[in-house]
Design a protein around this nucleic acid. Structure first.
Length: 116
DNA sequence: GTTCTAACA
DNA sequence: TGTTAGGA
């Protein structure tokens, strides 16, 4: 199928689908026309990618995680680092949350000093 | 009308 | 990420 169809079916923009390909996350075949040719499996892969992206994960993190989501059940060999990776992402989010909380308090104090 | 690459306000 | 240019 062409890029437009997989885009609609996966909810991933055409722009992002091309970007993910340059990052090695998706590798569609090429037709003689030069058009990308996606498989049915690519649709599922694209949907997984969308979920990870929705979770705020970077392409780098997705590269580690995607191989572990192939089958919802068995996740052993290639996924020893999955826990570590997710823990790392969680820590990154925690730090971000702390920074945002500080910004929030700062802005709140500015507002408070506005009209006494 | 769709897709491609490259590049930008 | 969107959008646009210029081709195919």
């Amino acid at each position: 199928m062409k890029i437009g169809e997989i885009s609609e079916r996966s909810g991933v923009s055409v722009r992002m689908l091309r970007y993910y390909e340059t990052e090695g996350l998706l590798t569609p075949l090429r037709r003689d026309s030069g058009y990308r040719d996606y498989s049915e499996a690519d649709v599922e892969e694209a949907r997984r990618i969308r979920q990870l992206a929705d979770a705020g994960l970077t392409v780098e993190a997705m590269r580690d995680l995607l191989p572990c989501i192939i089958s919802p059940e068995p996740r052993f060999d290639p996924c020893e680092n999955l826990r570590a990776r997710l823990d790392g992402e969680l820590e990154k989010l925690d730090r971000k949350l702390e920074d945002m909380a500080r910004s929030r308090d700062l802005i709140a104090s500015y507002i408070a000093s506005l009209s006494p």
